[in-house]
Nucleic acid binder design. Structure first.
Lengths: 259, 259
DNA sequence: ACGAAATGTGCTATTATCGCGCATTTGCTA
DNA sequence: TAGCAAATGCGCGATAATAGCACATTTCGT
């Protein structure tokens, strides 16, 4: 028996096992594995090869995956699944223009993230960043909650119970030699984030990269966070950083009114 | 027996019916229906209510859908499914910066689309548009192929056989009182697009909105298109329009080199 | 050329799924 | 407030869908 979302509990009997397996196949196409062979899919999902084959061929048939000889990869149709969420929140129509306007004030890109389980997911971004993109974050990119500024601001945006739960359960692992692995110290920084209204993380998630982020809370209880990242040296400049913080704070208010 | 992607044929036996039904449930969360009740899902998918319930509860269990009392809606986790595709093409790292640079030359937003079946799907965009967003297009938004500039440029980017097939099969319906419903005339405009290197559509898809778009073809055979839309009066200015066309052409070359 | 890995697929036993129906709950309207 | 329609949760049994095994064939790498 599992309890989900405060409604009646979802029992094992309510779960479609085949559908869950199929979603596991779809999920295998991920950042580090965008083109997959059938044996790779089977290994990643733990399914028998024949089962994995049928499920991925179903995705091919539905148009979400294409097959070039032995290699399977996603098609643009997969983006259509995302658009239901993006349209529901009107990111394109209302939030991105706001992000863009504020990003122009500081000539830096602003990203917006929301919580997904124990991680942060980028849901919108606008503007041109001022640092060489090491990975290239896009909508759907994930960052960890605890070692990143945008993640800490997300946690700080949550009600106290949920905050405590996330701090206790979210993964805490080393990304750089500056990553803080003391869960208590991270908790203290999140409390400070909640109190002063922004998070500032220097080099803990990406070497040489610092980030500022602010929590976003809407009247209806929706939470998100906004973040800017840049070279550590640039954000070490307190004048610039305060400018960034002020801009992000104002932007957060504007976004909160839209959620 | 169905033939897919030039590989062996996908037989009925290769398709997982339950998984396909589940994907139908996921697909029901769409632009015009972002929050759904169980009976709505059942009606949209044509499934029995009990089946629809089990499938949507599976999505809740997996975290892609949340349930607030009687209403189901997508969670940010759905974006993670899209990120495999976006990362595979490095849209965030390489293509969006290019779009942004060119969009700044003309102070207008540039969108990039790819073909999905018989429609166009937005896969990237950058910059601030100069028209009031009526809908707010985001990654994953769909536009029809034949009455839109970006769609026509997409078709024009295809090899001749595929172009013919799309012109014959893509839906052609009225969006405004300027929509051209003569499939022959649309075919001629697409041929012109291929020849002169850009499409120009005035008010056929959105009233009072015109658009310019250019085909993108990469060495490896990938096709896409880039588009700008604006108020009809603005794009009626031939000087401005030629500037837009030149910029889009250059941008297309740069993007083609990245695909 | 050989061997390992991968592919496609037939087949059967099993089990997951479907859908019906019932009891209960909820929401709306008069 | 009462009544009715719509919606929900879920038990249950029949059966259709699935899983997985094994075999023949193909592909790839050394």
């Amino acid at each position: 028996m599992r309890r989900e979302g405060g409604m009646r509990e979802i029992t094992d009997r309510d779960i479609s096992l085949t559908f869950a397996k199929g979603m596991g196949v779809l999920k295998a196409f991920d950042t580090g594995a965008t083109h997959l062979t059938l044996p790779q899919i089977a290994r990643t999902t733990g399914l028998d090869r024949a089962s994995a084959r049928r499920l991925v061929l179903t995705l091919v048939h539905l148009g979400y995956v294409k097959q070039d000889e032995r290699v399977f990869s996603l098609t643009p149709r997969i983006l259509v699944l995302a658009s239901g969420f993006l349209q529901a929140h009107q990111f394109g129509k209302t939030i991105e223009p706001v992000l863009r306007a504020f990003s122009q004030q500081i000539s830096d890109a602003i990203s917006m993230a929301m919580i997904d389980g124990l991680q942060a997911v980028y849901v919108a971004h606008a503007g041109a960043g001022n640092r060489p993109a090491s990975i290239g974050f896009t909508v759907g990119s994930r960052v960890p909650l605890l070692p990143s500024a945008i993640g800490r601001a997300l946690v700080a945006a949550c009600p106290p119970d949920k905050m405590r739960g996330l701090i206790a359960a979210a993964p805490l692992e080393r990304f750089t030699d500056r990553t803080v692995l003391d869960r208590g110290a991270v908790a203290a920084d999140i409390a400070l984030t909640a109190e002063r209204g922004f998070a500032f993380v220097e080099g803990e998630f990406e070497a040489g990269v610092s980030a500022v982020a602010t929590p976003v809370r809407s009247e209806s209880g929706e939470t998100a966070s906004l973040g800017i990242s840049g070279s550590a040296s640039r954000l070490a400049d307190e004048g610039y950083r305060n400018q960034v913080v002020d801009t992000l704070r104002e932007c957060s208010k504007a976004v909160a009114a839209l959620l």
